[in-house]
Computed example of a mutant assay.
Amino acid sequence: MMIKNSEFIISAVNPSQYPTDNRVEIAFVGRSNAGKSSLINTITNRRKLAKTSGTPGKTRLINFFLINDEFYFVDLPGYGFAKVSKKEQEKWGGMMEKYLINRPQLKTIVLLVDSRHKPTQDDVHMYEWIKHYGYEAVIVATKSDKIKRSEFKKNEKIIKETLKFRGDDKFIFFSSLNKAGKEELTEMLISDI
């Protein structure tokens, strides 16, 4: 299946604003600088569908994008890096938790980690949370254009060991810059919708 069309539907703060059409949802989570918006733009072939910025923490709401008139990509606020107050971060956390715990339409959670670095404690907590609530997890190691080919295996091992990766989850390297991993990731996400 290819992504033929994508459109922004709504930015939500609370459940009363979420779409009510019961379509399947795939959520994207990760640190504020992990590249969620860039990834969404790359796999939908839309440069400005999701807002990107040089300043981490641009996504402050839960953004719903309708894909192929069939399902949603959901861009969640980033964690751990944005230069915002503790109070604002707690507000984002509560908003995300409400969405992630009470959303039966949510099928898969895509966790973005930086391929160059060992996952942070926040990444580990997010992965544990995904598994605790029984979601399918897809781990995407972003910015893979910034590491050497010879480092891929070593970095994959570090990421999987740090997260205590479960065998039923999926892992892929990805680059928004050179589009490496784009086709495989798209297939991975939408093949069984």
Results as ranks from 00 to 15, higher is better:
48 K>Q: 15
69 D>G: 11
39 L>E: 01
90 E>W: 10
81 F>T: 08
12 A>W: 07
69 D>Y: 06
86 K>R: 15
83 K>S: 08
36 K>V: 00
79 Y>L: 00
15 P>R: 12
89 Q>N: 11
81 F>M: 12
61 L>Y: 14
62 I>W: 00
12 A>I: 09
21 D>N: 11
47 R>A: 13
88 E>C: 09
81 F>G: 06
77 P>S: 10
13 V>H: 14
37 S>C: 07
14 N>H: 15
75 D>F: 03
49 L>S: 00
15 P>K: 14
73 F>N: 02
31 R>C: 03
60 R>C: 05
35 G>F: 01
31 R>E: 07
28 F>C: 05
77 P>H: 10
28 F>H: 04
16 S>K: 13
89 Q>M: 15
15 P>G: 12
71 F>T: 10
24 V>N: 14
71 F>Y: 14
50 A>S: 06
82 A>L: 04
68 N>H: 07
48 K>S: 14
47 R>F: 12
78 G>I: 00
62 I>V: 08
43 I>G: 03
47 R>Y: 13
73 F>D: 00
22 N>D: 14
71 F>H: 10
39 L>R: 01
28 F>I: 10
82 A>T: 02
34 A>F: 03
73 F>G: 03
28 F>D: 02
30 G>A: 09
56 P>N: 05
79 Y>E: 01
46 R>A: 08
61 L>Q: 15
20 T>H: 15
17 Q>N: 12
80 G>N: 12
87 K>D: 15
67 I>D: 02
70 E>F: 06
76 L>P: 01
60 R>M: 08
17 Q>S: 12
91 K>C: 12
28 F>E: 02
66 L>H: 04
62 I>A: 04
45 N>C: 10
55 T>F: 09
74 V>A: 03
82 A>C: 08
84 V>D: 08
48 K>T: 15
72 Y>Q: 05
76 L>W: 04
44 T>H: 03
90 E>P: 08
75 D>R: 01
66 L>M: 08
55 T>Q: 11
48 K>D: 15
91 K>V: 09
29 V>C: 14
39 L>H: 01
87 K>L: 13
85 S>H: 05
43 I>H: 01
27 A>D: 04
55 T>W: 10
84 V>A: 12
50 A>R: 00
76 L>F: 08
28 F>P: 01
19 P>F: 07
81 F>Y: 15
57 G>A: 09
54 G>R: 12
82 A>K: 00
91 K>S: 11
70 E>V: 09
44 T>S: 06
